[in-house]
Computed example of a mutant assay.
Amino acid sequence: MSWALFIDESGQDMKHSPYEVLAGLAVEDRQLWRLIRQLSDAQLHHFGMRLFEAYGKEAKAQKLLDRKTFKHAAQLAPIPQAERQRLAREILEDGTQVSRRRLTALAQAKIAYCEFALKLARSHGAKAFATMVPQDAPRPDRSTSLRKDYAYLFERFFMFLNGQADDPMGYLVFDELDKSASHVLLGQVNSYFIKTANGRTRSRLIIPEPFFVHSDLTTLVQVTDIIAYSLSWGLRLHSMTEPAREELAPVVQAARGLQFRHETKTRTTWGYTLIRDLRPSAAQVA
């Protein structure tokens, strides 16, 4: 048995998002294909077609859950599912056939699908981890050391794996960056797992060499993107001061349902955490 950790991020442009989020969604190997197939069926149910067929690329959460989506969704009362699916498909197939009812149907379908996708992942035993970082957080200079948000993500993934029966292995699946950025990240991850004490400990259960995939072809990276976006805009932990978008509450609640939780007699560790400084600690520096 093994677990895949699908990793994606939101707010890295440091322009509009209130918090920079690095999220991971862990799915057991025996659940992967079943979950992917059911997510594909869910897209057919909500949109009458698969999202990649509609957009020709990954349907980013930034488009699925932006403010305009919620504005359009609220234009009319909830549309019955069968009619909503037909109207959503019509506007996806021909964007020139715009009407108020079609726009409303598509928006309502987007919100319903995102919430359902997260609940479906939970029903398959998936667990989520995320770091949330203020946009003004100190950041490391260019170096070979891994940023603290990645180290925290790996720490919690290791804690999760270590708590499972038979100590299953975990592997990392990243949304592919441009080739040079992927090489930099690969070198940092490799250095962390091989040259630092914490990394060597965690490499007992986490395979140190990650896989890079095209997010527009990988369903579960898209689900991780939904988690990252909804947390950035809608979840506020203690002492987080940026305003949250209240309309995102149902999707955020579904994302919270996926959150990893680890309890001991003296401490509870949560999968979602706030990090105020991205510079690596001394223990992370090789």
Rank of each mutant, 00 (worst) to 15 (best):
A26M: 05
A74T: 08
A109P: 12
K195N: 13
V133R: 03
A82I: 15
R147I: 03
P210N: 09
R200C: 03
R142L: 15
Y229H: 13
V251H: 04
D29K: 09
T196I: 05
E115P: 09
V221W: 00
I226H: 05
R122G: 15
N162D: 11
Q108N: 12
L22P: 02
K63G: 14
A254C: 13
H238I: 14
L177G: 00
L153S: 04
A61L: 07
T264S: 15
R30H: 12
A82N: 11
Q31N: 13
D175W: 03
I227H: 02
R267M: 12
P80A: 08
R84Y: 07
E176P: 00
Q12H: 12
W33I: 11
F157H: 06
Q43G: 05
Q97F: 05
I111N: 04
A26R: 01
P208S: 05
R102G: 06
Q188V: 13
S230I: 09
E83A: 11
Y150I: 07
L103N: 13
R102D: 08
T201S: 10
K15I: 12
R276S: 13
M159D: 12
R86F: 02
Y272K: 12
D277R: 08
L76F: 09
A249F: 08
H46I: 06
R89W: 09
A121G: 09
R50N: 13
A151V: 15
A117E: 01
R30F: 08
R142A: 14
M1R: 02
S281V: 10
F70D: 07
A74D: 15
S203A: 15
K265A: 14
V133T: 14
D225K: 07
K148I: 04
Q38L: 10
F116K: 14
R147W: 01
H262M: 10
A151W: 02
P208K: 07
Q97E: 13
G257L: 03
R156P: 00
D136Y: 04
Q222W: 05
I7P: 00
F154A: 09
R139P: 03
L120E: 02
G257D: 09
H183G: 12
I227T: 05
L51Y: 03
I111K: 06
R100Q: 12
G257M: 09
V133Y: 01
L153A: 09
A165N: 04
C114N: 04
F260C: 07
I36G: 04
Q222A: 08
L186P: 01
E247F: 10
G170K: 03
C114E: 06
E58W: 03
K127G: 00
H262E: 06
M159P: 00
R276N: 15
S2G: 07
T266W: 13
D13N: 07
Q164C: 15
A61W: 01
D94T: 08
Q135N: 12
A130N: 07
I194R: 11
L248N: 00
H238L: 12
L185T: 10
F47V: 06
F70Q: 09
G11L: 10
V251S: 02
A282C: 11
G234A: 13
H72Y: 14
T268Q: 14
